[in-house]
Design a protein around this nucleic acid. Structure first.
Lengths: 335, 335
DNA sequence: TTGTATGCGTTATCAA
DNA sequence: TTGATAACGCATACAA
């Protein structure tokens, strides 16, 4: 059986195409009686309007796309979940793309999205450097009147709506918390030091140290590049008692540090406290469990979706919004 | 700027609509010279064909949908990742839906998908009972010539392509492994005992016991309904030494059992071994780490996508395939 | 090699 | 209250 069309209904019921169309759209031009006949028959043959035809005609799109770096990252999965719920409830279909942290993949995805199939885009770009080419593609998408909401990994000088956590506050809060636990030799481990997020977290860390009158020691700030030297570096710092606590920005590295510290026979949190970032259950089940920043991924996803829908539906020319979402600290055994 | 169309190019270059269309599709009817002019101009104004128009005209769809129960489940996230990669590489857009284990949500999603916007569907249905209504909707989708691949949570009597792990073998292998570790009082905890998967895993368990000449004890088979009685039940069995090992089918319950056993001051794996199911890193970082079945989610996703694309593109009437993917056992500290 | 005309399925405008 | 017709943007059969 082929997909039935309005013409099939027309032939079967004897009414014209336009009468059918109006009835199915519940127009008040058509009499109840006629509508009933038509709707009943449409149901019977399981008629659904052709997606492409109606969209072509109406020139409206109810598809949106989301691009995330990595679906296996619990935080991004939560964002996706929140966004998906919001979009679905508002009648939008969500197309989902994953860039796998690859700029070339991201370019391909964006290229594709220019075909006009989407009404809006949510994006958290692949790790920096944010390429000029990506930026150019995003601007082209905006030129087509397709609004963009950038979330989490926002890019400072790109103009669009943005949703992100309060990165400054997150590390600021962690330092305050650690100090309240009697810690003062606080290391910061960051695999994303070159990103805006990384810089803000670094700033929050530094600011809190200042407020707490702890002198900043550049040896305790450990930006990671390849990620291989971290073991020896942490080991050195720990053994020489230069640190009594570690803040780590990335979940898997946090767990690695956790293991390392235990293997070195230090006590967590007495000798060395650990605080990390994640939305997931991983830190909860480790022994000792790890104190962490809750990034509220689901809320970020929902909020971004709401903002995007608002842009799509009320294409006002209001200034771009920048929503800064507060984080919260979940205190567990490691601090 | 509005999205440019073929007509804009036609006006600007002086060629007719069809010459433009043919050039952009690299038809060999058109001279190189003309093509160059047209393509160059199209690039300049950043022309992209209208998605809806071309699809309406060609009556082909390069969208597919996937419905998964829960995006926060690491296994399903992996399936999604694998599927997404495969589809993207083959030029398909993937629309992603999450039923959140809700039958009513699933019904809404399926209702929507009947609008003809997809060329194929991958689905792992919400937890059973697999409703008659869902089945009816799926059949309707098939009636529109939209192929369906059901993965993981397959439904026995529904006719479509299916991809799933060898559930029988998974528990069979676990029992064999536990026996090789000297265990003989093996409990099986299952929160999905009413599903086909649950039954097969139960069968594998029973069969392996038989092969190993261990008498089946129905007290050691613990189907979970609300999931609240498990604590006391496990505690009783452990204290009375009725069990020396536990197989658990669900990841979070496995972790809960793991904690419970440790709290009861038993040694894992000496007193009680534990084996679970998951694709994720959770079991790796717990102490002691947990032996588990790797369900190869990414492969399942890729394979399902491949099968679906094959159905879409070579709409042959071959019999439905049922791909049974072997699992592998990752042996860790808990056994 | 290029242009003309038609239709994909729907909706909207206007006429009956 | 219903019907005829045009148009959305593109692709193709056919004519030139």
């Amino acid at each position: 059986m082929n997909k039935p069309t309005i013409i099939d209904i027309s032939k079967a019921t004897g009414f014209s195409k336009s009468t059918i169309s109006k009835s199915l759209n519940d127009s008040k031009e058509i009499s109840k009686k006629t509508k009933n006949i038509i709707i009943k028959y449409a149901k019977k043959i399981n008629y659904k309007p052709n997606f492409f035809a109606s969209h072509l005609r109406k020139n409206i799109v109810k598809n949106v796309a989301i691009i995330i770096p990595n679906i296996l990252n619990y935080y991004f999965a939560k964002v996706l979940k929140g966004a998906q719920q919001e979009f679905f409830d508002k009648g939008y279909d969500l197309m989902c793309f994953v860039n796998e942290e690859s700029i070339s993949r991201e370019k391909k995805i964006l290229e594709k999205l220019k075909n006009g199939s989407i009404a809006g885009l949510m994006i958290s770009p692949a790790k920096n450097p944010f390429s000029k080419k990506i930026s150019k593609q995003l601007v082209e998408i905006q030129d087509y009147q397709i609004p963009i909401v950038m979330f989490d990994r926002i890019v400072g000088d790109f103009k669009c709506d943005k949703v992100f956590i309060d990165d400054f506050q997150s590390t600021y809060d962690i330092v305050k918390h650690l100090v309240s636990r009697g810690k003062s030799k606080i290391a910061l481990v960051s695999p994303i030091h070159e990103t805006l997020i990384g810089k803000k977290r670094y700033d929050g860390y530094k600011k809190a140290l200042k407020i707490e009158k702890i002198e900043y020691d550049e040896n305790l700030y450990i930006p990671l590049n390849s990620g291989n030297t971290i073991q020896s570096e942490i080991t050195k710092l720990a053994i020489s008692k230069k640190i009594d606590s570690i803040i780590c920005i990335e979940q898997h590295i946090t767990v690695a540090i956790h293991s390392l510290i235990l293997n070195l026979k230090f006590n967590i949190p007495k000798d060395i406290a650990i605080v990390g970032f994640t939305d997931g259950p991983l830190f909860e089940f480790i022994k000792p469990s790890i104190t962490s920043i809750n990034q509220h991924g689901e809320y970020i996803g929902k909020l971004s979706a709401k903002i995007l829908i608002d842009r799509i539906e009320n294409n006002n020319n209001l200034d771009f919004v920048e929503e800064k979402v507060p984080t919260s600290l979940i205190i567990r055994g490691s601090s």
